[in-house]
Simulated assay, not measured.
Amino acid sequence: MTEETDQDHRTEEDIRHGLLYSRVLDGHGGAREVHWQEACDWKPEKPGEVLWIHLDRSAEGIRDWLMNQIGLPEATANLMVSHETHPRAFQEEGALIAVLRGINFNPGAKPEDMISMQLWADEHRVITLRRRRLQSPRDVMKQLDAGNGPKTAGGLVTEIIEQLVARMNRAILDMNDKLDHLEQIDFTKEHETALDDIAVIRRNCLSLKRHMSPQHEALSAIGRDAPKWFSDMNRRDVREVIARLHRYLGDLDVSKESAILIQDDIDSRAASQSNKTMYLLSIVAAIFLPMGFLTGLLGINVGGMPGVDNSHAFTITVIALVAIMLLQLWVFRKLKWL
């Protein structure tokens, strides 16, 4: 189910308040859909129930709703609706607040064009907010609708985090596939295209590293000081995500170094080809230099030039020039210049 398909189920009130979708987790891996008013009035009716609300933070009135309905302090509510994208995480009165980033896989977008997502969660409610479409929450929603999703608030938070980080691997694999292709192409025919692709890959690596390194710190903060309502399994899952993200950051460094090596190889091949061309031109110039001197000397228009009255002088001159050229070629070969 895409976000657009889910939005078709929304009421006018949902749309007006920026509700993208909302689910009540049943504690067994499934969930039921709820709309805006029910989500606002919701209270746990059965053990294990958790409310998840996914909002468009650009909708009007979200900040006031967070303050008045959820009871968030003004500073926290401002953070939840701000366009600040620097990842961080902290606890406030037992609740977890985090700003995280996901890779933008929307059509026409660049992977390094990250999408930020704000998250507030306590033991019974999880609220996520975003401005642009983000795939990871939709994937978690699909799991819930299929009956095999997370069962607790801690499980929901860790699953969202896992999905955000897992999609980073897809971008790295795409770049590595391009690098593998670049290693096999004929640089003499696709020189400019290869350099353009390498420049894009290097920019992507630098951008992803710059954006995702703070996310590693944010997740590490969650791992060090996880909320009390996180289970031991949730804590292990967070540590595993941190280790995976650390590995992905290392993979980015490897991809960047591979791109640099390929570019160096292209540059060295281009320089070698240029040197060969210049060398051949120098040899040609060296061959024709004495012949050019002789023909120039014989072409001066002054008295006393030999062969002016000899009908065989031109033939003799041509034979002499050919002999000089052959002599030069023999000398160049002796010197191993050719």
Rank of each mutant, 00 (worst) to 15 (best):
E159Q: 12
L119R: 03
N106D: 11
R130N: 05
A95E: 00
H83K: 08
K178M: 11
G147S: 05
I115P: 10
A146P: 04
T85E: 07
A146H: 08
A109E: 12
Q184I: 02
A153V: 00
G108S: 05
P107E: 06
R131A: 15
K178W: 07
G154E: 01
A98N: 04
K151T: 09
H124N: 11
N148Y: 09
K178A: 12
K142W: 04
A109H: 09
L144I: 02
G108W: 06
L96C: 07
A95L: 06
E92R: 15
I198P: 04
L206D: 00
R131F: 10
G102L: 10
V99D: 01
E159C: 10
D177S: 13
L119D: 00
P150I: 01
M114H: 07
E123D: 12
D180Q: 14
T152P: 08
I97P: 07
Q135M: 12
I115E: 10
T188G: 11
A171W: 02
T188Y: 14
K209M: 09
A194R: 02
E84F: 15
M175D: 06
L182E: 05
A171H: 03
P87A: 08
G154S: 01
E123I: 03
K209G: 14
I172G: 03
I160T: 02
V157K: 07
E93I: 03
V157C: 12
C205G: 05
E183Y: 04
E162P: 02
A166C: 03
I201K: 02
I185A: 06
R167Q: 13
L134T: 00
Q135H: 13
D180V: 10
